[in-house]
Design a protein around this nucleic acid. Structure first.
Lengths: 217, 217
DNA sequence: TGATAATTTGACCGGTTGGTAAACATTACA
DNA sequence: TGTAATGTTTACCAACCGGTCAAATTATCA
């Protein structure tokens, strides 16, 4: 038998587990850095440390690899939004969502760039995911936010644009990392910018920029 | 003589002006939608309505086209930040900067995506621009913001991260357009989302989300 | 152990890509 | 108008790309 894994129904062997793992790790590295079209199968095979035909034995096409990667990563990528709790304290929930998203940008920048590349170029491979599960989840959480606003627990605002604002400000530190580093200059070898960003963003989203009315005695 | 334009020093002919214009317009269309590596010279020639060798007569290489495009676009792209006025009213300046950046995202999304593609993939072609002119301009405006904060005209905050936040929230509507549309659902054929975004962002940056202490009589 | 299935490899293929060569056409201008 | 410079096209190339194939190697297990 020479059927590659995708066509098999039996349980996967140890070798399959290991190789597919290595391939998807390499695919994440290469796709996130170059986009789908910019990535080459040779490059992925090289990073994965195997020959191209060997790689294509496990994933028959470049598209199949990309799809498997997207499926695997999208779920965990949306976890922070799922953790958004309707029962919690509104301001605290938003703060911790920002913090979690910033941690993701710091710890999983490749995943962020994978999606950014895709969406930026018109989302040709993940349109269904955007209009389906993503929209459904956002709709659900937007309703939570709307209820908070209605109850006077946070300022009245468009919940969708609030979510967009949190996404964009936090993912910016992953997707535009080189620009952030270039502008901040050297001397930021560590992750200090993430702590500064967290401080700034939590403050921004809660209080805004206007000077708060201090009791003027 | 068969020297292409780049090597010539004499004034450019009418034909050169026209063709280079058409080429850069086509290049913007194609590079912004596919990134540098994803774009093909054939594709750009096609959009420009000329043969590939003809195109390569005006720009000797794909890289030369890309560079010319970047040089041309970067300047206008930074105009809104340059307009940031140290003498103006701080909160009003920030509001109008947000508004201007949103208008750019609405009216020039291709320019935004051109840079986003580039930066996302490590800025291999514009590293110098980021570390040079861009950083210089941001440094200058950050100083203005810092002075405002010090004078108590706006809340104390990190000026660099404030600029990042304005960039990311506004450019999000150009760079992640398909995702924004997918999440908002159909029925957004017009530009209504930009007005909603403007309302939300101006409010966010000025007041934050916390309910403002209303005079409770 | 031996046979069978799973895995790996090198050689290769057709299509695409960025770019070139040279002949041909057009324009500018003395 | 004549001619030299400028502009355009056809044909082409070498490198690269995603993917195939058949043969060789290794793992599995009766």
């Amino acid at each position: 038998m020479v059927l590659p894994r995708a066509a098999r129904t039996q349980r996967r062997t140890r070798i399959q587990e290991e190789k597919e793992e290595r391939i998807l790790e390499a695919a994440l590295e290469v796709f996130s850095a170059n986009g789908f079209r910019g990535a080459t199968v040779d490059q992925i095979a090289d990073v994965a440390g195997m020959s191209k035909p060997n790689l294509l034995y496990y994933f028959r096409t470049k598209e199949a690899m990309h799809r498997a990667l997207i499926d695997r990563v999208l779920d965990t990528w949306l976890d922070p939004l799922r953790a958004f709790d309707a029962e919690g304290n509104p301001v605290a929930e938003i703060r911790s969502y920002i913090r979690r998203k910033l941690e993701m940008a710091r710890d999983y920048p490749r995943e962020s760039r994978l999606f950014a590349n895709e969406v930026l170029q018109g989302a040709p491979h993940i349109e269904d995911e955007l209009k389906g599960p993503l929209k459904a989840l956002v709709d659900e959480k937007a309703e939570v936010i709307r209820a908070w606003a209605k109850a006077g627990k946070i300022a009245k605002c468009d919940p969708y644009h609030l979510i967009f604002a949190i996404w964009s400000t936090t993912q910016h530190y992953a997707d535009f990392d080189v620009q952030v580093r270039a502008v901040l200059g050297q001397g930021n070898s560590g992750d200090g910018r993430f702590e500064d960003a967290a401080r700034f963003l939590e403050r921004l989203f809660v209080d805004g920029l206007q000077v708060s009315e201090q009791p003027t005695p």
